[in-house]
């Protein structure tokens, strides 16, 4: 980390952010096991981080450039690199000071293709990190998500309720059937294994839980419990505190898309930081997407 003026010329990306905890939350959402390799893709629109599990599960975190207080992108093409997700999250976490809004600067690539991070708050104290990156492996399976028909098959449910339902299904385990029915409009999660468990969300009965519902014909697909669980196991507490919803869409072939919204707003320092103009920070959201492949199952009914 020599003088920043020199490096600015050679870096593909120099960005700064003022809410480290928000980014840690967003990235932790896709951290479903201890050792995970992630691929990071940089572009003029922002940063995308992709993790996947043996061709059955893929997750993406979209950090749009609006989430950063400074975003200088000068690369040609879209640089991609691989790194350990766990290490990246643990490392970013050391920059986050509870009750403090800390500003950090992220720069790529360093002289040895590292990802460079440093705190940008004070001149006398400095935290810095260099994370070794790898040449990324090619994504093994294409998660092109296509709508199942002319009307989307989707529903939006309170993230907390979704997480609770999936946690409860741990007991039957193994494979979980998701059934969408237009009449009466409802979503059913059904687990069979060590006993049966069925959780119904009725659209008209639970409008506070099931916020939106679109379905014109009944569909039913099975998903491996462990992949379904990965989509909600690390939802940050800020999501449930903000009472946000998660959107689930079933695409062609039963591919399930799960979307969460994680706030990356500056921690509210309201009493010391009210703008005289009454300016409110526009909501800064990181988008999280999971794609889960259905189990190939002979008795799936789709009419």
């Amino acid at each position: 980390m020599s003088s920043s003026a020199i490096e600015a010329d050679t870096s593909d990306l120099v960005c700064q952010l003022d809410n480290v905890q928000g980014i840690v939350d967003a990235l932790s959402t896709v951290r479903w096991k201890r050792h995970q390799d992630a691929v990071v893709e940089l572009s003029e629109h922002g940063v995308v981080l992709i993790v996947e599990e043996t061709g059955c599960l893929q997750a993406k975190v979209y950090l749009q450039k609006e989430l950063f207080i400074r975003y200088e992108y000068t690369a040609q093409g879209r640089p991609r690199f691989g790194l350990s997700l766990g290490l990246f999250v643990d490392c970013l976490n050391t920059f986050s000071v509870p009750g403090h809004s800390s500003t950090i600067e992220i720069r790529y690539p360093g002289p040895d293709m590292q990802l460079l991070i440093k705190s940008a708050d004070s001149l006398d104290d400095c935290i810095y990190a260099e994370i070794r990156t790898r040449i990324p492996e090619t994504i093994s399976w294409d998660y092109n998500f296509e709508p199942a028909g002319s009307t989307p098959l989707s529903f939006t449910v309170k993230s907390a309720a979704l997480k609770e339902a999936i946690d409860d299904l741990e007991w039957p385990g193994s494979s979980i059937q998701i059934i969408l029915k237009p009449v009466p409009p409802s979503v059913t999660f059904r687990g069979e294994g060590h006993g049966d468990l069925q959780i119904d969300f009725m659209y008209y009965a639970n409008t506070d839980l099931l916020i939106a519902f679109h379905c014109d014909h009944q569909v039913s697909y099975r998903y491996k419990y462990k992949f379904l669980r990965a989509t909600t196991s690390n939802i940050p507490s800020s999501v449930t505190k903000d009472n946000r919803g998660s959107k689930l869409t079933i695409g062609r072939g039963g591919m399930l898309k799960v979307q969460h919204l994680v706030s990356v707003a500056r921690p509210s320092t309201s009493h010391q930081h009210i703008d005289s103009a009454g300016y409110q920070q526009p909501s800064r959201i990181a988008y999280i997407e999971f794609f889960v492949k259905p189990e190939e199952d002979e008795d799936t009914v789709n009419d």
Partner: peptide
């Protein structure tokens, strides 16, 4: 470590 260098400096 082989994968990461993480440090903090407090001055003055």
């Amino acid at each position: 470590t082989t994968l990461i260098t993480l440090g903090a400096e407090f001055r003055k």
